[in-house]
Design a protein around this nucleic acid. Sequence first.
RNA 1: GGCCCGUUGGUCAAGCGGUUAAGACGCGACCCUCUCAAGGUCGAAUCAUGGGUUCGAUUCCCGUACGGGUCACCA
Length: 570
Amino acid sequence: MEMDKDYERKCYELAYLIFPDVDETVDDLEIKYPERNTLKEGAIVTRIAPSPTGFMHTGSLYQAMVHKKLASQTDGVYYLRVEDTDQKREVAGSVKMFTEELKHFGLEPDEGVLAEDKQVGFYGPYIQSKRKDIYRVCAKHLVEKGLAYPCFCTPEMMEKTRQMQEANKIVPGYYGVYAKCRNISIDESIERVKNGEKFILRFRSNGSHMRKISFVDAARGKIEMAENDQDVVIIKSDGLPTYHFAHVCDDHFMRTTHVVRGEEWLPSTPIHLDLFEAMGFKAPQYIHTPLIMIKDGNSKRKLSKRKDKESAVSYFIKAGYPPEGVNEYLMTILNSDYEMWKSKNKDKNYMDFEFKLNKMSSAGSLLDMPKLNDLCKEEIAKMSGDEVLDRVLAWSKEYSKDFYDIISKDLDYSRKVFGLERDNTQKIRKDIYKWEDVEDTFRYFFDDIYQKELEDKGYIITSLTEEKNTITKDIIRKSLEEYINVYNEEDTKDEWFARMKDTAQKLGFCVNMKEYKAEPEKYIGSIADFSSIVRMAVTNKKNTPDIYSIMQLLGKDKVIERMKDTLSKI
RNA sequence: GGCCCGUUGGUCAAGCGGUUAAGACGCGACCCUCUCAAGGUCGAAUCAUGGGUUCGAUUCCCGUACGGGUCACCA
């Protein structure tokens, strides 16, 4: 009894020695950062917690979607907290990039760090390096309770212990008898701190590896794991907390109800539960999301920052994937019944969908680029020509300046180009899924690009002779010569095609595809071949939308000029 | 290696003890067609494996294999 009182007193003495300037208490913080009572029952408070490493992972976007959905569905709060406790890895400008990228996808938070210089909310500061005082109050609390202690071990000593443990096949780590500083007397600790010896702070775990704990993951259900028995570091030598400790303090005092994080955190959840209990805090609900994988040879692995360009959200922005399409894709891998719902609610978007935690898949899914492309294609197909132009303008201004200059020269013309087979309701063109490809798809509409391509790659029309030996250079020449004479810009589409057929027939082409297919040897080629000659002469492309519309857009002079030019090169 | 999570066609997946095992992407064929893209019709293709439990297992339990994650003063 006497001893306990004495020990208790010494813990306070030690706490005071370590934190002489901390006079706030955990109870003070409880009052300063009260529970969010204004929220209605069942409101979910979530947070996205990026580290400012200059890189936003695609997985973070996926999680941002979960946060946004959960919070908005329950009239809760989704906030952003910057986790910058590892100052070595910090990259300037990260916060700006992160918030802008979230915004790009319409997944901006409601609270916390909303922009580089903008924080909103009563639970701040929302940047961990600015919350040092809070962690110190909490750490002091643990020292006072005898639940944290100074550790004087050097990295070299730690390394030796680890090697010994590995050699002897003992569970590695700092715990039990291997936790040297855990087992020194409180008097010695006090003495060594007084002497100015360097130390860090460790948690004193009372857990045992032999016991099991279980908790309910809101997406995966009950999970059973060994209790934590590691005396993890809570305050590092730079005075900042480790992730484990910051998570516990912040999510408690920011009143987070649901912690949505990647599966890689699952193994350390017992540590967090242990810490929550030690602090006397109620633990939040955990949701561990599956990792996004990528195919690597015959196996799959986690998206890697170094190897996979798709691991960075910025990749999708730079390539000009429409955010709507990316979001659609994320939803399909996020909630298993989304695609079903979507097919019944084509006109609605993902914000109208009721996201359910128990419908979350727990297996890591492969990033399926063809599927993403398809979804993006569908989204772009919904846009009008004007909208496509606006988007291409906005994208190219940022990522393809030359192209931007070219298309903004004559906006009326560009509007018609991008409205091609798009504004005429019935057959909507679906051949673009990202803005990056637009320049190549429409290159023949813009003289500068068209000319450059001819110089670089040459005239592809001669390739026709290789495909079909009846189509000789002579035939191509005759076809163009003939067609130049009869082309009439005033023709309606039907008249135009009749004229095409007429010309083709005179030269020996078959104008009826069925007849041609039945007896191809009777003709030098079909109307399709003749069309190809015209198409290539005008666009230098094998495949394009309807040539009539293209010719109309280009105008007679240019059409004739291009055909003559091609003629001179055969 | 210890611990944890996971495993239905090539990919994403529905299913929650009895189904001809949905659907989407991709792939193939055909149709439409001036070429593509699109659209239409059709098609090939899946319950990792061995034991239980049960009248009956894709579904429940255990083992095995395989894949992934994690074991820091990084998050």
